[in-house]
Amino acid sequence: MERSLFLAKLLGPTFVAVSLGMMLNLGLYQTIIAEGLHAGILLYLSGFLSMLGGLAIVNLHNRWQMDWRVVITALGWLMTIGGAVRIVLPQIAIAVGSTISSGRTSVVAAALATGALGGFLSFKGYMRCS
């Protein structure tokens, strides 16, 4: 449980901050996403870091119990797979990223989903410590 709480405290506030940044700077984030998709090194580095972080989570927290902690495990696997796709099949990552950055609605949806996930993990991580 300690690893779950640690990871929830780490990921939750990070996702909330990313979500707030996206919501407060929609146009800028659309530009950041679009530019990141066309700068090969940024796509590669984001894939490398995502895969590295995802593997760290999976190796520390590969728990599939049907409670809130499965969210952390699923995130670890999604990060690992997403990172591998950006490294091995960047054209797929570019297609998906282009769809997301193509309109404000999809950026808002991504921001809201990220914020909800971050809020959930923050709640689980910090409210269980009191």
Results as ranks from 00 to 15, higher is better:
residue 39 A to K: 15
residue 39 A to Y: 13
residue 39 A to L: 14
residue 40 G to F: 15
residue 40 G to T: 14
residue 40 G to N: 15
residue 41 I to G: 07
residue 41 I to T: 12
residue 41 I to D: 10
residue 42 L to I: 14
residue 42 L to E: 09
residue 42 L to V: 12
residue 42 L to G: 04
residue 42 L to Q: 10
residue 43 L to A: 14
residue 43 L to T: 15
residue 44 Y to K: 10
residue 44 Y to I: 03
residue 45 L to P: 00
residue 45 L to V: 11
residue 45 L to I: 12
residue 45 L to W: 12
residue 48 F to E: 09
residue 48 F to R: 05
residue 49 L to Y: 15
residue 49 L to W: 15
residue 49 L to V: 14
residue 50 S to L: 02
residue 51 M to L: 13
residue 51 M to S: 09
residue 53 G to T: 10
residue 54 G to A: 04
residue 54 G to F: 01
residue 55 L to C: 11
residue 56 A to Y: 02
residue 56 A to I: 02
residue 57 I to S: 04
residue 57 I to Q: 05
residue 59 N to W: 08
residue 60 L to K: 01
residue 62 N to A: 12
residue 62 N to E: 10
residue 62 N to C: 12
residue 62 N to T: 06
residue 63 R to L: 10
residue 63 R to F: 06
residue 64 W to N: 02
residue 64 W to F: 14
residue 66 M to H: 10
residue 67 D to F: 01
residue 68 W to R: 00
residue 68 W to A: 00
residue 70 V to L: 06
residue 70 V to E: 02
residue 71 V to S: 06
residue 72 I to Y: 05
residue 73 T to I: 05
residue 73 T to A: 14
residue 73 T to K: 11
residue 73 T to Q: 07
residue 74 A to E: 07
residue 74 A to P: 05
residue 74 A to C: 11
residue 74 A to Y: 12
residue 75 L to A: 03
residue 75 L to R: 06
residue 75 L to F: 09
residue 77 W to P: 00
residue 77 W to H: 09
residue 77 W to L: 10
residue 78 L to S: 05
residue 79 M to K: 00
residue 79 M to T: 01
residue 80 T to C: 04
residue 80 T to I: 03
residue 80 T to H: 01
residue 81 I to V: 15
residue 82 G to H: 04
residue 82 G to S: 13
residue 83 G to N: 08
residue 84 A to G: 09
residue 85 V to Y: 14
residue 85 V to K: 06
residue 85 V to F: 14
residue 85 V to N: 11
residue 86 R to M: 13
residue 88 V to Y: 10
residue 88 V to T: 07
residue 88 V to S: 01
residue 88 V to M: 10
residue 90 P to K: 05
residue 91 Q to F: 08
residue 91 Q to V: 09
residue 92 I to E: 09
residue 93 A to I: 07
residue 95 A to S: 02
residue 95 A to H: 03
residue 95 A to F: 04
residue 95 A to W: 05
residue 96 V to E: 12
residue 96 V to G: 06
residue 97 G to R: 11
residue 98 S to G: 15
residue 99 T to V: 10
residue 99 T to Q: 08
residue 99 T to I: 09
residue 100 I to N: 08
residue 100 I to L: 15
residue 100 I to V: 15
residue 102 S to N: 12
residue 103 G to P: 10
residue 104 R to I: 13
residue 105 T to F: 01
residue 105 T to N: 00
residue 106 S to I: 09
residue 107 V to W: 06
residue 107 V to A: 07
residue 108 V to Y: 00
